[in-house]
């Protein structure tokens, strides 16, 4: 018998369809957050999910595409920079898979993932929000109050932004990560292209 493996075009064409699906799911995640009033942003979970299912490139490009499309339709041009944040999300997810920080049944394995998604990822978003968006307060009462409080007590613009972003990124990214792990655990094996 001649042995044949699935050839490159198959993986490539799957990616072509998977990437827009991730982008659309990110968008729809945002809508679902509005619908359920869940306390998260909800528009990076599909990037994590895509990375968990189809690997780093598909997840990163899918997340990036989502932000590109939003930037060119609703959010305005500079919002494309958030696409790089989505790439960072995919990268962190990828690291977590590689390191095995992704086992829901052994919650302590998630701790390093939480550190990456919390304090470390937020350094990046803080840079973006100051350099591209001026670093004002977020337009939600609680983070804005935190922002004002830190600014008042320390007078440090960067720190105020950082702490404010922590207050939104931590719940969002932690919950999104758990959600995407939960979903992956229910996805039939044959869809999962990433080798663990």
């Amino acid at each position: 018998m001649t042995e044949r493996e699935a050839t490159a075009p198959a993986a490539r064409i799957l990616a072509v369809v998977m990437i827009p699906m991730i982008a659309a799911l990110n968008y729809v995640g945002g809508v679902l957050v509005e619908l359920t009033k869940a306390p998260i942003w909800g528009d990076t979970w599909a990037t994590m999910l895509g990375t968990l299912i189809s690997g780093l490139w598909v997840g990163a490009v899918g997340g990036f595409l989502y932000n590109i499309i939003m930037a060119f339709t609703v959010w305005g041009l500079p919002a494309w920079v958030w696409g790089t944040a989505n790439i960072v999300v995919a990268l962190i997810t990828w690291i977590c898979i590689r390191m095995g920080w992704d086992d829901l049944r052994r919650p302590w394995t998630l701790i390093p993932a939480f550190i990456l998604f919390g304090p470390i990822y937020t350094v990046y978003t803080t840079m973006v929000s100051i350099l591209i968006f001026g670093g004002g307060p977020l337009w939600k009462p609680l983070p804005a109050a935190i922002y004002a409080a830190v600014l008042k007590s320390t007078g440090n613009f960067w720190l105020a932004n950082y702490v404010q972003n922590l207050s939104t990124e931590i719940p969002d990214k932690w919950i999104s990560y758990i959600i995407s792990l939960l979903i992956v655990s229910r996805v039939p094996r044959r869809f999962i292209l990433v080798r663990r």
Partner: peptide, 10 residues
Amino acid sequence: IPHFYGGRIR
């Protein structure tokens, strides 16, 4: 088959 699915063929 085989380009998309892979597998063994004779």
